[in-house]
Design a binder for these strands. Structure first.
Lengths: 225, 225
DNA sequence: TAAGCATTCAATAAATTAATTGAATACTAA
DNA sequence: TTAGTATTCAATTAATTTATTGAATGCTTA
């Protein structure tokens, strides 16, 4: 009576642990986070996460074995993508749990941002309201493809890489709110640094596009309006 | 420009991975699942999960290091509990992700239940409606303490251990719906087996109390009404 | 104060996981 | 067909994780 149940339970929890093991490595979490932004080739994922190609490939295969991601061969490249939007939501749940339970996360973030202006924690609700109602210039500093895949309605697409060259497109009389992939993406941090150095009144919105989506914020797709 | 960012990201994802590592072992997941039902001593957790005391203790310390659970000394015992209700919700999210992504989970469950009557998948919605509206006798077969901590309003508390002795309390003219901790808890499975052998018209509700809570089902606390 | 119990600690052996390297494969384009 | 590129595979090493065992700790009660 006790034994067959034990085997059943062991088998079930072993399956659950497949997901757990997949998300137990920092590097795999970084890859998963990148894939939450959209499909990517191994090459791109490796570069963005600071892994060698072979190592990235192996981690991706672990994620695939847990069925969290899928791979599709396209010509010379293999394109990885999340198996499902719920994987993105799960990753976010895990991130939020870590943020709420582990004080170290906030500590590391504070240390990284400390001394930089425009990055201080602001009233999130008020800022989001401002963004939603168009009281500010909203700047999307991610690569154009990511903008196309989903952005804040009315946001200007100005990838960090082009920022220096296109400063003239930005208003000097209005507050600028820059955002990117989320609180741990440094694109908007660097954008704010550049903008403030040039005298713009710029602040950072920590929330990334996936956060906004999860918060029920409207998301626009495609080219700039 | 690239290097300090890398260190930041590595530090952040390493923190996230603390949560991932904590939930990467089948046994720790089982312990976590048990703790979702309420606080427990090491001894009880060890027994229920089929671990030695020392091994259970070590796993619990891993969970504690990830701040998913908390321990409190009470006399001779140490009582572990979830650090937070969101941990329970996270565990459930992980379970549901595994169920939806890993066909093996359904397979293992089917194999375990196959051949047993009253356990076939039923129309969940219809059954829940019946339960909610009182068209059936609802039977809670978990230990009394768990019943007290939260149960379906109107449910009878009849722990599996006492079931054989208290069959006379049950109606023969009405359908009986038995539930326990969730789809992978075997208490209600065994209850159904006993009841059907004795000629009762009994079926199983897969959802456990935490599932019902998450679904917004009303939950009653305390003694039987 | 001593005995008994629950829990943790510490040490060990076995198993698993991670990063690295170089070779192999699969596809494209010349 | 060949050369070049992206990815995967296989083998190795180092590091981490797991279960087990027996001893140590800390509390309670006789």
């Amino acid at each position: 009576m006790k034994n067959p149940n034990r085997a059943f339970k062991d088998a079930i929890y072993e399956q659950f642990a497949r997901v757990g093991k997949a998300v137990s490595s920092p590097k795999r979490l970084e890859l998963l986070d990148l894939l939450c932004q959209g499909p990517r080739t191994v090459e791109v994922l490796a570069k963005e996460s600071g892994l060698t190609i072979a190592n990235a490939s192996q981690h991706l295969q672990v994620l695939r074995a847990a069925r969290l991601v899928e791979a599709e061969k396209e010509g010379l490249h293999v394109i990885y993508r999340l198996a499902d939007q719920t994987v993105c939501e799960f990753f976010r749940a895990m991130r939020i749990l870590a943020e709420s339970r582990l004080a170290e996360v906030e500590q590391i973030k504070r240390r990284f941002l400390e001394g930089r202006e425009g990055m201080e924690p602001v009233d999130r609700e008020a800022l989001l309201k401002l963004v939603r109602e168009g009281g500010v210039t909203v700047l999307d500093v991610r690569p154009v493809e990511e903008y196309k895949a989903g952005h804040i309605p009315g946001a200007l697409s100005l990838p960090l890489k082009e920022l220096q060259l296109r400063l003239s497109e930005l208003p000097r009389d209005q507050e600028i709110v820059a955002y990117c992939r989320g609180p741990y993406c440094v694109l908007s941090v660097q954008a704010i640094e550049i903008l403030r150095a040039k005298g713009f009144n710029a602040i950072r919105l920590e929330e990334g596009i996936q956060d906004l989506r999860a918060l029920g914020f409207p998301i626009a797709m495609g080219e700039e309006a």
